[in-house]
Design a protein around this nucleic acid. Structure first.
Lengths: 194, 194
DNA sequence: GTCTATACAGTGATAGAC
DNA sequence: GTCTATCACTGTATAGAC
């Protein structure tokens, strides 16, 4: 698969459209024709940029993970304390959800993982690995500096926080009533700090 | 839509097969032919029992919610303390996940909610409503009896707990490394009780 | 890079016989 | 309740011209 940094400008428009469709409808919920209509070209032109649907989705996930890592770096540069970093992290999910209730690309693909081409599955698992590792480090640092309670263990908290954010997007969009990732993060961090 | 308690024995086998397919692959990831092959009959026979795919999925979600409510009642009958009830609740998710890493039917459908027929969407939102209400009541009772910390507020905790369980199934299945709903629930309840 | 045309499998769904 | 046969349509994907 081509790396997203090497693709043309028209291919980028295809990736943008596919990303939105995946967040709204999932991998099995959109077609090349949907992408073509959004971009304003014909279906075979999409195949010119991405030979298979799996290639396209893998590129979407790859770029999504890359952008997330950029944001993680930005958070480290802007916030020193663990609690502030975790709050800024939660805002990444809230900002995504704020655009037409879009889901996390990898949360959506994660739900569909058993019906995905192998290349996509790999990118999705990498996203979760990157995020869990980063959260675990932030939390462990915060515990060591006594900014956070020493228990539960950092990695367990990291997995729980990530799961709560991913789940919050899904439950909120379906139930209408629930308060979304921001609310869930707030509740979680309250418990973590108290 | 017909209520699931009124359908025939052969229709029940169809619902069983569709339920498993939804948990593994999602609404947009299975076809009438997949169901037919699992049940051992032909595609038009599925249509005889459920005119549309939406009818079938709605019945699956309806029965799933009903069974969940039976389990909630059973928990109330077996456990008096809030913490025990919450742990037993988490076990419902863990037991589902333990069967070939099956997702919660409504967690999966919730992710796909923007590409679902209206009848299915309605059943999914009802599932989340039932679960959030029950959890909020259990937690509020526990807080009143001083078995749980008085903050955060019961409904906020209920939404967060449910989101964490739904998210844990998705993240664990995709990442391989994470510890599943049981681990996440354990971590969450530790924070809640400490 | 985009197009028209097309291949070909699969999709949800229906008609009508047994 | 199940079947064969068939429908109209959409799905991913390819060939080849511009």
């Amino acid at each position: 698969m081509k790396h997203f940094s090497e693709i043309s400008e028209s291919a980028l428009r295809v990736v943008d459209a596919a990303e939105g469709l995946i967040q709204q409808r999932g991998y099995n919920g959109f077609s090349y024709d949907d992408v073509a209509k959004l971009v304003g070209i014909k279906k075979p032109s999409i195949h010119h940029h991405f030979a298979t649907k799996g290639d396209l989705a893998a590129t979407v996930a790859q770029r999504y993970t890359h952008r997330f890592r950029e944001q993680l770096l930005r958070i480290e540069g802007h916030h020193a304390k663990a609690a502030d970093r975790l709050a800024a992290y939660a805002a990444l999910f809230e900002n995504t959800y704020a655009i037409d209730q879009r889901l996390c690309v990898c949360g959506m693909l994660g739900a569909e993982v058993n019906s995905l081409p192998a290349g996509v599955t790999h990118e999705v698992s990498r996203f979760f690995e990157v995020n869990t590792d980063w959260l675990a480090t932030v939390i462990a640092d915060g515990q060591r500096a006594q900014q956070l309670r020493p228990l539960p263990e950092a990695r367990a908290l990291a997995e729980t926080f990530l799961a709560a954010l991913e789940g919050a997007m899904i439950v909120s969009r379906s139930s209408g009533s629930a308060r979304g990732p921001a609310g869930v993060a707030h509740t979680f961090l309250l418990s973590l700090l108290a």
